[in-house]
């Protein structure tokens, strides 16, 4: 299957008056058509900045320092803001975390949806309005005819998120980036939104990048996962491999710190001790090493390369090196050489 998106060695930093904060420190991944990729990580891991970097919405004082983002063969990092606008809301759409504040309160919902439609097509007002009504129906807003004239504050949080999804889907995007779309919502609403996204993806054949810190959500809808920490990718894998045999201490730690009602046993939650690194003075070596129970001397000094666990699983951890001591659960394998240009997962 063709690769719809390729991110290669992306580096994004914020140049503040305190210094350079390296939010994204050399990450690479790819997406094939129809993938639902989950990016999971704590606050500060760089996941949101990654998504913003893809569509060029990283604001001052931040900028994409190096690397490339190739969408359907086109290099996005070289495009001007105006050229990127043709993609945004059109082929690549994005929805954000807080629906309560993400819609302009002084214009009607219809006005705003129609605006997005007409920005990327030749439809006149009537046609755009018809499409807008279609979309509202599609995302499950009851009584679209009256609601299209309503203002955002007349909708609940879940409804607003649906409106935002309608906006994002209005021009049939090929790639939808969802940055924690359900974090600000109730669990029951969350389930509805996830259902909606799953259906839409099946119907429209879009690819999705789903950013979250919630492993449960990942398990629900993603087929591939990237685990980020400290601006770097710790592990990337297909969903089954990640959950059955995680190959990075951080991933394992994440799994252990989440309560699992299914097991039925009384087990203690094991939090990961310590706190995320300060990206103003980024640590040399593996960013997770201060908190890792298997840390070795080399981990503090050098960041590990990606080790190929399988065709669909890669982990950035020295424990996979043949020269490293054997630790239960971590397989030994070859690392991906630095010169490798093709992104394998």
């Amino acid at each position: 299957m063709a690769k719809i998106l390729e991110v290669k060695h992306l580096v994004t930093s914020f140049f503040t008056h305190l210094g350079e904060v390296q939010a994204v420190r050399d990450i690479s991944f790819s997406l094939e058509k129809g993938d639902i990729l989950g990016i999971v990580g704590e606050s500060g891991s760089g996941k949101s900045v990654t998504s913003l970097s893809i569509i060029g919405l990283v604001d001052d004082p931040g900028e994409v320092v190096s690397g490339s983002v190739i969408f359907e063969g086109k290099e996005l990092t070289k495009l001007s803001d105006r050229e990127l606008n043709k993609y945004r809301g059109n082929d690549i759409s994005m929805i954000f975390q807080d629906p309560m504040t993400s819609i302009n309160p002084v214009y009607t919902v219809g006005n705003q949806i129609i605006e997005v439609i007409r920005a990327h097509s030749d439809m006149n007002h009537a046609e755009a309005k018809a499409r807008a009504l279609e979309l509202l129906d599609l995302v499950g807003i009851p009584e679209p005819l009256t609601r299209i004239k309503s203002f955002p504050h007349e909708f609940s949080g879940g409804m607003r998120q649906r409106v935002l999804i309608a906006m994002a889907l209005s021009n049939n995007p090929k790639l939808l980036i969802a940055d924690e779309p359900t974090t600000a919502l109730d669990v029951t609403i969350q389930a509805q939104i996830l259902d909606l996204m799953r259906n839409l993806q099946a119907k429209m054949g879009a690819s999705i990048i789903f950013i979250t810190h919630d492993l449960g959500v990942i398990a629900e809808i993603c087929n591939k996962v990237i685990v980020m920490y400290g601006g770097k990718i710790m592990e990337k894998a297909d969903i089954m491999s990640l959950y059955e045999k995680p190959q990075h201490p951080y991933t394992i730690g994440l799994m252990q710190s989440v309560p699992k009602p299914e097991t039925g046993q009384k087990k203690r939650l094991v939090p990961i001790k310590g706190s995320p690194p300060d990206l103003l003075k980024p640590p040399t070596g593996c960013p997770f090493s201060p908190r890792c129970e298997h840390a070795m001397e080399v981990c503090l000094k050098e960041a590990a390369p990606l080790y190929k666990i399988s065709k669909t699983q890669f982990a950035s951890c020295w424990l996979h090196d043949k020269d490293a001591p054997v630790v239960k659960g971590f397989v030994k394998c070859e690392s991906v050489p630095d010169e490798e240009t093709e992104v394998l997962l």
């Binding site: 706190s275 201060p290 840390a295 070795m296 080399v298 503090l300 020269d323």
Partner: peptide, 24 residues
């Protein structure tokens, strides 16, 4: 593969604490 002399020894927790960064 370039053979760098890498040190695969485990480190104890005290050394790790130094690496923890705390802003004042």
């Amino acid at each position: 593969m370039v053979n760098k002399m890498r040190d695969f020894k485990f480190i104890d927790s005290s050394k790790k604490m130094d690496k923890e960064q705390i802003r004042e």
